[in-house]
Simulated scan of single mutants.
Amino acid sequence: MHRTIFDKDHESLRSAVRTFTERSLAPRHEQMLKDKAIPRDIWLEAGELGILGLSVPEQYGGSGAGDFRFNQVADEELAGFSLGVGANFALHTDTVPPYLVDLGTEEQKHRWLPGIAAGELITAIAMTEPSGGSDLAALKTTAVRDGDHWLINGSKTFITNGHQGDLVVVATRTGPGEGAKGITLFVVEAGTPGFERGRKLDKVGQDEADTAELFFTDVRVTDANRLGEVGRGFASMMRLLPQERLSTAVTNVGHAARILSETIEYTKERRAFGQAIGSFQHNKFRIAELVTRLEVTQSYVDQCVLAHTRGELTAVDAAKAKWWSAETQNAVLDECVQLHGGYGYMNEYRVARAWRDARVTKIWAGSNEIMKEVIGRDLGL
């Protein structure tokens, strides 16, 4: 599909990111899968290339692009290489920096953003709790005033970049009984007494993605680490979640598009009954359906990206992009496995790993059921 939303600068970044994946990521990918983490020197190299500072203004060490299409290009290329790698970088690049840029004081921005853009400080955001799932307003991790400090107690789970994160944006309850109005955000730094990481979680897919449990026991921080106003954390999360969901949609489509392209080439080369399997009418029709569905989805996501660059993307449209792209991604990859036959079930084939990696996209960044609830409420239902 010919896409018209990018210019030569976007495509220049795409070329640089693809070279990065081929030169630096591919040779070490198997080790990343074993270690369940992306090495620190890879983060630093990504920082040198400017990949990590796309949401960071220039005065704080970022690229100052202010154009989410650059984020989109980087996300597509990284997810096309591996969804686990792409998701970890996207969380650091697309999701966390806007909290600091939008809510941080000048001192906080100068303290943290240059390191984030350089890859020296790996970031995470801790919302989800063991008993809470998608119900962010019901979180139980508390932050209680103690003189000039706050004491944070609680736990979080399924935290991307959790095990090696240097800065963690933590959603806490500062107003007991106040529901969504009693939530405040804090930045907890690695090494703070009482802040501990649990095991790296053993997931179905995305083995190279660092995902962990986090524990907070009388973690003492001051207002210098409070992000935004007391009691305004939930409102801030709701305002900034659309970019996270858009980022998720971009990675979903970029991931599925690369694997589908590779599958089409496979069906041209793999022969059965004396002919290429892609030439059988059933397979030909199925591939035509997959290509069409994915391109239609890509068109919608592209329009959402353009709306976001104009400051016009709504939470409802972001929810549509998130859930539909996840459904499309999983449907496409399931068919790609089928087209590979028995080889599609072998971990040595990219399609098998991609199929496993994709399943969580219907759950994270707000489950697809929550996305439909958001859309339904907007319709007055």
Rank of each mutant, 00 (worst) to 15 (best):
G165Y: 04
R28W: 12
Y345I: 06
E295L: 10
Y300P: 00
E295R: 06
T105N: 05
I287N: 08
R377F: 08
D35G: 06
I116S: 02
D148M: 06
D146G: 00
D207H: 14
F68T: 11
G61M: 01
D166V: 09
V332F: 05
F234C: 00
I370R: 11
L49Y: 07
E107C: 03
N71R: 10
L91T: 14
V187E: 06
P97K: 12
G311P: 09
G233H: 00
V221A: 02
Q281G: 07
G274E: 00
D35N: 13
M346A: 12
A65S: 13
T141F: 06
E348Q: 12
A257G: 02
E48R: 14
D357V: 08
D218V: 02
I375Q: 09
A352V: 03
F81C: 08
A37T: 14
A74W: 01
G80C: 07
K156S: 02
V170L: 12
A143K: 00
L83A: 13
E30Q: 14
G165W: 04
P130G: 11
F158L: 15
T160I: 15
F81I: 07
Q206F: 08
Q303Y: 05
V17S: 03
G50P: 04
F20E: 05
Q275S: 10
D41H: 12
F280V: 08
I42Y: 05
R69V: 09
W112A: 09
G80R: 03
G254L: 10
R69H: 07
A90D: 14
A117W: 03
E335Y: 04
R145V: 02
E335T: 08
L49V: 01
D357H: 08
T309R: 15
D35S: 13
S299Q: 13
G311C: 07
V250W: 01
T174M: 01
A79G: 12
I370D: 07
R359T: 04
R69T: 05
E129H: 01
G311L: 09
R40G: 12
A117C: 10
G62Q: 06
G62P: 03
T141R: 06
T297N: 10
H10S: 08
L103K: 04
G132W: 00
P176S: 01
V96Y: 05
A74C: 11
V360T: 11
T105C: 02
G50H: 07
K200E: 08
F195Y: 15
T222C: 01
N153Q: 02
I38Q: 10
I277V: 15
F273C: 07
A190Q: 15
G205Y: 07
Q243K: 14
E77H: 03
A224Y: 01
Q298L: 11
V305M: 04
T174I: 03
A126K: 00
T297Q: 13
A209D: 08
V360K: 09
A118I: 02
S12G: 11
K268R: 15
L103Y: 05
V301G: 07
K203T: 15
T297R: 04
H2T: 13
A249V: 10
N368Y: 01
G154V: 00
N161I: 13
L260T: 07
E369H: 08
A87D: 12
P97G: 11
V296E: 14
A212Y: 10
V101S: 02
I259G: 09
T172R: 00
E196T: 15
H110I: 06
A212W: 06
V188P: 01
G342A: 12
T142V: 12
A65N: 09
G50R: 04
V305W: 02
A256G: 11
T160H: 03
